[in-house]
Design a binder for these strands. Structure first.
Length: 486
DNA sequence: CCTGGAGTTGTCCTA
DNA sequence: TTAGGACAACTCCAG
């Protein structure tokens, strides 16, 4: 063999060249590099990606491959259980080292451990890095050496002790493995929808890739960070950073965001900056919870809810999913999700509260739907936030906190900008009626060309009654101890 | 081990 | 009109 044994750089939730510790390690090892992405739906306990995430991933991988190609490094694509794929490539290439950035969902984490063990047994170097979150979940502990279950002390701990390493530069050159490996074709993975192709709205809403992530970040820092704390609640204004899908797929790292925000600090209001950083730390907290509760998307964090009898109403679930509840703010949110693969955070809370409290449908139905339809569907943040809204989670909203979809619309979308964008059949209705169109006078509805029950649905539940039903039902399990639960 | 303060995002009723 | 308290109780966490 003329070539030295190569090193495999295994890409996962880190589709970027800059601030990628595994890639930097591979390059600095001096060995020829094999860049690899494995589409793994086969290892035990892997949760298959939702359709919207796959759509994003298709373009994300295209972007990563193009970026690597500028350094003459091909990206190899393989489908299969990661363990099998790695064995095969090691055999084929003679690689004697593998490196990657750690993942934290159950299936991925188990695969990590198993792979690391056999690589070492086989005399292969195996190195994993912290790349997708800032703090390893094991490292953040309470004073009594336990995992945090409440956000604020978690935040305080990090705010006091946070040392975020400086982001690594993208490699300037990569010594590439010269052997020929067979790569799958991305097109054959079928990540793009065809019948029907529902992706037009998403393609319109997003530019995908590492460069696009930084473009979006820079625009946010320049235009919207300074009053993020106030403007973020207005879904019509689009003032949030929209970093979530880039983070989820790793086009950008939380370290980069943290430092970019710090650097911008002189220009930005300190409170606004802190509020945004807290959001980043919520993501860390979610991964912390996931790590200590591997079934976070399946099991109530609070076991008291294990015997709660959720309503099983396919009709209600359907209406919610399709944005046909008759509550404009809820429907606007669900349609934004369907069309663009994303929903404004304020509205996520409103629709979540509506499904769980007004309709009393199991939060897991909502979490599943979000997982399927969000481009940022995250293994940690998605279940953690759903459990928070449902009241089953860590540090959760109390059961009596029920968002009033009429008030929320009036308060946060007072001009109806957001609602009219996604519920165009209400476009001619005066803003003051957009919270509750059924209360608008007949002639106003007529003038706006709206016939309730035909052009737009009647509300599927009455707010007041649904609220009372939720309070009564949820009160049954409040105050009763769930026993030990372990 | 004990103590005390506190806990992401709300709503509604009453005075 | 507006401001304040009730809505539950529990567990978490630091000192």
């Amino acid at each position: 063999m003329s070539d030295a044994p190569p090193i495999i750089c295994w890409f996962r939730q880190d589709l970027r060249l800059a601030d990628n510790p595994a890639l930097t390690h591979a390059v600095e090892s001096g060995k020829p590099v094999i860049a690899l992405y494995v589409h793994d739906e086969f290892s035990p306990d892997i949760r298959p990606m939702g359709a919207a995430q796959k759509w994003w991933l298709h373009h994300g991988l295209t972007d990563l491959a193009a970026n690597l190609q500028t350094l003459d490094c091909p990206l190899n694509l393989k489908s299969g259980a990661a363990e099998d794929v790695l064995r095969e490539i090691i055999k084929e290439s003679g690689a004697d080292a593998v490196c990657w950035n750690r993942c934290y969902a159950l299936g991925e984490q188990n695969a990590d451990r198993a792979i690391k063990a056999w690589l070492k047994d086989d005399g292969c170097e195996a190195k994993s890095f912290a790349g997708i979150i800032i703090h390893e979940p094991d490292q953040v502990r309470t004073g009594s050496d336990r995992p945090y279950r409440v956000y604020t002390p978690f935040w305080k701990n990090l705010a006091e002790n946070m040392q975020v390493r400086a982001p690594l530069p993208a490699p300037g050159a990569i010594k590439t493995h010269s052997g020929n490996l067979t790569s799958d074709s991305l097109d054959h993975w079928g990540f793009l929808p065809t019948k029907p192709d529902w992706s037009a709205g998403m393609a319109n809403a997003w530019e995908i890739g590492e460069k696009a992530a930084h473009k979006q970040l820079d625009a946010f820092l320049a235009d919207n960070l300074h009053d993020y704390d106030k403007a973020r609640d207005n879904p019509g204004a689009d003032c949030t950073s929209r970093m979530s899908p880039y983070l989820r797929h790793g086009h950008v790292s939380p370290h980069q965001l943290w430092h970019a925000c710090q650097d911008e600090g002189r220009m930005a209001d300190d409170h606004a900056r802190t509020v945004w950083m807290k959001e980043l730390v919520w993501r860390e907290f979610s991964y912390h919870l996931l790590n200590h509760n591997p079934r976070l998307h399946e099991r109530n964090f609070n076991a008291r809810f294990d015997h709660f009898s959720w309503r099983r109403s396919q009709a209600d679930l359907r209406a919610w999913q399709k944005g046909q509840t008759g509550y404009p703010i809820v429907d606007a949110g669900m349609r934004q999700l369907w069309q663009t693969g994303w929903m404004h955070n304020r509205v996520r809370m409103i629709v979540g509260s509506f499904l769980v409290k007004h309709l009393l449908v199991d939060w897991r139905e909502g979490e599943d739907w979000f997982w399927e339809t969000l481009v940022d569907g995250d293994p940690a943040s998605n279940p953690a936030q759903w459990q928070w809204v449902a009241g089953t989670g860590a540090d959760a909203a109390p059961f009596f906190r029920i968002f009033n979809p009429i008030l929320q619309a009036e308060k946060f979308d007072p001009k109806g900008t957001y609602i009219k964008r996604f519920v165009p059949e209400l476009i001619d209705l005066p803003a003051k009626h957009l919270g509750a169109p059924w209360n608008a006078p007949e002639d106003v509805l007529e003038e706006a060309g709206i016939t309730l029950g035909e052009t737009y649905p009647y509300p599927i539940v009455d707010h007041k009654k649904a609220r009372q039903r939720a309070l009564d039902t949820l009160a049954e399990i409040s105050g009763k101890s769930a026993g030990d639960g372990s």
